[in-house]
Amino acid sequence: MASFLLNRLIQSVILLALVSVIGFAVLHLAPGGPLSQFALIPGMTQEQLAHIAHEMGLDRPLPLQYWEWVSRLVTGDWGHSYRDNQPVLAIISGRLPATFELMLTAIALAVLLGVTVGVLGAVRRGSIFDSLATVGAMVALSIPTFWFGLIVIYIFAVKLGWLPAGSRSTVGDGSFSDYFRHLIAPAVVLALVEVAIWSRYMRGAMLDVISQDFIRTARAKGLSEKSVMLRHAFRNALLPMIELAGLELPTLLGGALVTETVFTWPGMGRLFLDSLGYRDYPVVMGILMVSAVLVLIGSLFADILSAAADPRIRL
């Protein structure tokens, strides 16, 4: 197990290095730059712009910029934002709670609903419920998240006025119920795709387990169907689900970006979009690294779980 972990860690570090090179190159080679936000200030001269570029270190060769950025990164200094000069790490960690709040709520919803729908679908395989759930999941996976978000806003905020149209809280109202009201719509929108995925995985896993010998044995022993399903099948089918939670992180992060945009949620995804618009390289790179780390932790977590469950896996 220890060597497996070490191996995975080394692989992860290599991956992160690759991610950083790809990200850095893509960003810095793209046309446009952070200076354009200052360009339209009246009286701004080319000379002054060059001075700003020099202060920001933008006039140095790209490999050198990368090297400086990376060597500071490993010491924990992620640089400062071009927009407000705050340390990148502080900016990102300031936004993470909002994103996690949204993602965790969505996962909770997805697990609860998805697992229920999946189990019921598997147990009543071929029933109308199962067919509807299958079609429903496929449709849910095909709906553009932002469009669904807009429709939710239109119905529940604009027409019915039940829910706020965006933001994480009403300013000045720090109550739990206020936070909760703001959370409902974006969490449901983000959860939609996840519910679909979870229900499909759960159904598949249940069916796999049901067809295995020990279930037949259990049935043959005369245990009630309910007990067979819940005690044996369900518990065994849940294991791969935990793995899924780890593997679903990239999808969830991408979904969070879109959801945060539609609901003006002050999280990391929104920050990414804003920072990209301003070419705030340190922040964009920081977010890319943080999400890559999250993704890697997710898959590492998934691997460890499956390794722990399956003694044959020794990578």
Binding site: L15, I22, G23, V26, P31, P250, L257, L276, R279, I287
Partner: peptide
């Protein structure tokens, strides 16, 4: 395959947007 893994580390929306800037 490590390159594939590295690219998959970016949530695809992030990657799409970064590339769209080009």
């Amino acid at each position: 395959m490590r390159i594939v893994d590295a690219v998959l580390c970016f949530p695809s929306v992030f990657l799409l947007l970064a590339l769209a800037a080009f």
